[in-house]
């Protein structure tokens, strides 16, 4: 499949309870106003093994401020009602959802207006048995692939993923720079051979050059750690303005509001 003609969409992030439960709502409103159409709502976790220092610290702060699965679902209900055009995706490590009860979680998340799930430690073998229920609820498991994946497994993951495929741009954890070189293009071509879903690229998308490099190659770019860094240093309004600036600089949206 060829990439779509529509401009690159930006996906951004909220860690529930970071910097506080009260501020989450305003920050999300700011992101929507800035033109972000896809937002991950991350359940904070004590042991986020796929995340780098920025998101690890946000998780700890989020937990200290009451971030939880229930708080995430409550926020999802509120923001999805307020912003029906925006796609909200629940991002969590497996254990908080497992303790909540996976099937109950699927139903409650769908009911709260969540459209997709990103769960880094939930492998395709464990996702597949849940697909009938997830499809029925129109709740999309958004699975991840990494550059070191073999073709057989890639195909299997592409078949189980729904709505988007999350393309981990490089080996490692979130929050560091990535190079968009020929090797990366080859990786994308390999994925497109097996995948008809739109591709969301994450891990190391940090500035306008990154977005320009990805525009026309993939459909979605996840700017998450960078956004949380801005939020940590200047608050939600500042972070939203920086995200908007990024999108304008990358010619993804027009500068006039």
């Amino acid at each position: 499949m060829k990439p779509s003609e529509a401009p690159l969409q930006v996906m951004s992030h909220a860690v529930i309870g970071f910097p506080s439960l009260e501020e989450n709502l305003g920050a999300i409103n700011g992101l929507v106003a800035a033109g972000v159409n896809l937002i991950e709502l991350q359940v904070p976790f004590t042991d986020p093994v796929a995340d780098g220092p920025t998101l690890v610290n946000a998780c700890y702060q989020g937990l200290a401020n009451g971030g939880s699965v229930r708080a995430t679902l409550a926020l999802a209900r509120e923001v999805s009602a307020r912003h029906p055009q925006t796609t909200f995706i629940l991002m969590s490590y497996l254990n908080p959802l497992y303790q909540y009860g996976l099937e109950t979680l699927f139903r409650d998340a769908a009911d709260a207006g969540i459209k997709g799930l990103i769960i880094p430690d939930w492998l395709v073998e464990q996702v597949e048995p849940c697909l009938p229920l997830l499809d029925e609820l129109e709740l999309a498991p958004i699975l991840m692939v990494a550059p070191n994946i073999g073709d057989v497994r890639l195909k299997r993951i592409c078949q189980a993923s729904r709505r988007l495929l999350y393309v981990v741009a490089r080996l490692g954890v979130t929050g560091h720079q990535t190079l968009w070189n020929q090797e990366f293009d080859q990786y994308l071509r390999r994925i497109r051979q097996h995948c008809t879903l739109p591709l969301a690229v994450g891990f190391g998308v940090r500035n306008a050059e990154d977005l320009r490099a990805l525009n026309g190659k993939v459909e979605v770019a996840a700017v998450c750690s960078r956004y949380i860094e801005w939020q940590a240093c200047g608050g939600g309004d500042y972070a939203a303005s920086r995200i908007r600036e990024l999108m304008v600089d990358a010619d993804l949206i027009s500068p006039i509001r």
């Binding site: 976790f45 004590t46 042991d47 093994v49 937990l63 939880s68 699965v69 229930r70 490590y93 497996l94 254990n95 908080p96 959802l97 497992y98 303790q99 909540y100 430690d121």
Partner: peptide, 21 residues
């Protein structure tokens, strides 16, 4: 402790009701 999934495996973990270790 209760059965949970973290650090790559499933075992008995000391954790709270929200699955935080």
């Amino acid at each position: 402790a209760h059965a949970g999934i973290a650090q790559g495996f499933k075992t008995l973990f000391l954790q709270n009701a929200d699955g935080q270790l």
